[in-house]
């Protein structure tokens, strides 16, 4: 009794997840979220898709993708005691594939902070 049910449930799960993946209208954003979340365990992760702001730029001629320009705000303990360049390299490395492939990410703006830096910034802005 248990086995058939389990396999049906499993099948349904697989088909649902693969469907939602192929139908996602934001495959790159999904990939960014998944990779950053897994690798950096961010306490804050904002993903802004600014592509529409750049759609008419010359470099974007003939590009159909709606996911070309991203702005990320990442707060993670993983950035602690690392200089800015190293932090950004960590993110660039994570998203290497997405940055390199044809029709992938064209521009990536990054704010990379530790939780302490984020708090300091918030205090400053609040003051």
């Amino acid at each position: 009794m248990f086995l058939p049910r389990a396999s049906i449930a499993g099948k349904r799960f697989v088909s649902v997840s693969s469907m939602s993946q192929s139908q996602s209208r934001t495959p790159l954003e999904d990939a960014i979220r998944a990779k950053v979340t897994e690798a950096l365990k961010p306490t804050t992760l904002e993903i802004h898709n600014d592509s529409h702001l750049h759609a008419h730029h010359k470099a974007m001629e003939g590009v159909m993708s709606k996911e070309t320009h991203f702005r990320l705000i990442i707060t993670s303990q993983a950035f602690a005691s690392k200089p800015l360049l190293a932090r950004q390299r960590m993110v660039n490395t994570l998203l290497k594939e997405e940055l390199a492939k044809e029709g992938g990410i064209h521009a990536l703006q990054l704010k990379t902070r530790t939780p302490e830096e984020e708090k300091k910034l918030a205090d400053k802005e609040g003051a």
């Binding site: 360049l85 950004q88 390299r89 660039n92 290497k96 940055l99 390199a100 990410i105 521009a107 990536l108």
Partner: peptide, 15 residues
């Protein structure tokens, strides 16, 4: 580094 622009000062990559 995957994007342009890129700045070098005294042959050192700044970012």
């Amino acid at each position: 580094w995957p994007t342009i622009p890129q700045l070098y000062v005294d042959k050192e990559f700044i970012g």
